[in-house]
Amino acid sequence: MYKILFAEFIAPNVKKFKIEAPKIAKKRKAGQFVIIRVDETGERVPLTIADSNVEEGSITIIAQSVGKTTKQLNELETGDYIHDVVGPLGKPSHIEKFGVAVSIGGGVGTAIAYPTAVALKQAGNYTISIVGGRSKEYVILEKEMKEVCDEVYVTTDDGSYGYHGFVTQKLKDLIDAKRQIDFVLAIGPIPMMKAVAEVTRKLKIKTMVSLNPIMVDGTGMCGGCRATVDNKTVFVCVDGPEFDAHKVDFEILERRNRTYREDEELALKNFAKKIHEPALVEEEEKESE
């Protein structure tokens, strides 16, 4: 059992947790993740280690509730326990001094991009970050990014805060302004990562994305997380999660992620009923239309 030392919502449906896991805190590197299981009947789900504190023996994870497990996780409070936390898993981000490095985070993707942005800065890069959200309240980690990056741009889809538009548009603006860009890291919803890859492909800017397939063990044992990169099959949990954006087959990833769509909706509905949150049931129904 892993104790939650601290929990708070940082955006609608996005919660930040500090979890007691001293070994993981000591070992983890930017880009690595944990797999958690909330309770005894729970599913194993991967979450990126956003930060860690070695003295305190804690790791930070930031979860967006999109389905049953993340919803259930986000119901937990300071002092509660998570049944299983295993990690650090996956290959750390490849960090080197590229020159000018742009980290792009869409929605909760910012949480996944954050530790790598920190590492890029520490490696001596001039770091720019683009933090995107649907609207103002969905923008996360702006303050934290500002502390580590040389430049931070916030974008919102509805223009309620910062730049009005998608993260890709901001990236294009930078490119149009003839800014030097040597490396791009893009993490967020698959359509966003795909769009960034298209922007940088023509300019041959090295671009990495963090893939989010459905995982089970996270140790390379099941092959469920396989994705197609450079026309070859990779196991994202051990060969990744970060890959060259220009070589990833996003269609296959997107499609495989839909495998359990109906079950996921059912699980979420059952859970909403259990915690007496009828609004959630309806909201989800609307969204899935």
Binding site: T41, G42, R44, L266
Partner: peptide, 9 residues
């Protein structure tokens, strides 16, 4: 499933 959260085909 759904008593346990993990789905299968």
């Amino acid at each position: 499933f759904p008593e346990f959260d993990t789905p299968v085909f």
